Amino acid sequence: MKQHLQHPVFSVISKLAAEKNVQAYAIGGYVRDIFLNRPSKDIDVVVLGNGIEFAEAVAAHLNVKVSVFKNFGTAMLRYQDVEVEFVGARKESYRSHSRKPIVENGTLEDDQKRRDFTINALAISLHPGNYGELIDPFEGITDLNNKLIRTPLNPVETFSDDPLRMMRAIRFASQLRFRIDDEAVAAIKSNLQRIKIVSQERITDELNKIILSPLPSVG
């Protein structure tokens, strides 16, 4: 995987991870798109520790500005042609009336479990000790090869916690021409009414992405 980490921002993250004895991982869509041969300029980095503090250290090293979003526990910087968002590894729990999670510090595994789909739970280590190692606990690579949309946890739980994920599943199926796992399809049907707790703005955003996909009728 090391050949896919040639952008200079990765070497800076790796250097600071070693200096601060922090584990940091590229995770999510950037990693997924490596295997789909899709160019991506958005990099998500999960840190075992304080993601905001680590982002501020990276920004200081690169001499760039960092935007901090304390309510979400995230920070973002732009360097050359990429946008990098940092977050501390976390686990989430939900209340029935809201898709906004209660957040606690967690492990990498906790963070991967909270991801929407197995193909978005892939992580690559950026620490020099195991730089470039792929961490794939939910067989996301297999699902990519099989063109399958599947959730890391029980799909009923995944979609009930955050009903927007139902539309995201359909959107990814439409964009990538993937098939949604049968259990996930059943879970979408059983959770249809839960979409009411999602804002119209977020629903419209996903619907627009479906309409703009290569074959909208799939969605």
Rank of each mutant, 00 (worst) to 15 (best):
A17Q: 03
N130K: 11
S67F: 13
R38T: 13
L62W: 10
K196H: 08
A24Y: 09
P8C: 04
R115N: 06
D33N: 13
I13W: 14
L5I: 09
D33R: 07
D205F: 13
R150Y: 11
I170V: 15
N130Q: 10
V82K: 15
F69K: 00
L62R: 01
A184Y: 08
E109S: 07
N21Q: 13
H127D: 08
D111C: 03
L176S: 04
S217C: 10
G29D: 05
V66T: 07
S190V: 08
I195S: 03
S125M: 05
A26E: 03
I197F: 10
R78S: 13
V22R: 00
P155V: 01
Q3C: 10
I149Q: 09
A121L: 00
G129D: 15
L212V: 02
T204E: 11
F69L: 06
Y25R: 01
K41G: 07
G51M: 07
S213C: 05
I188S: 06
T158Q: 07
K91S: 12
D181C: 11
S96G: 02
I141D: 10
Q112Y: 09
F159G: 01
K91M: 08
V47K: 05
E92K: 07
N105K: 11
I124W: 14
A17R: 07
R115V: 02
R99L: 08
A59K: 00
K209D: 05
H61Q: 04
S96F: 15
L215D: 15
R114G: 02
K91C: 07
R194F: 02
S190Q: 12
P155W: 14
L5A: 06
H4E: 10
N145M: 12
S213T: 04
G140P: 04
G106C: 00
V64I: 10
K70Q: 10
L153Y: 06
P101H: 04
S160W: 13
I180M: 11
S96I: 15
A89T: 11
L192A: 01
I210L: 05
F35A: 00
L62Y: 11
T204Q: 12
L16E: 02
G106T: 06
R165E: 00
N50Y: 11
D136N: 13
F138E: 04
I211H: 12
R95C: 06
N63S: 01
E157I: 11
G88W: 08
T151E: 01
M76K: 15
K209Y: 14
R38F: 14
R150D: 01
R179G: 08
E85M: 12
K113C: 02
D81S: 15
N71E: 15
R177W: 12
L207V: 12
Q80R: 15
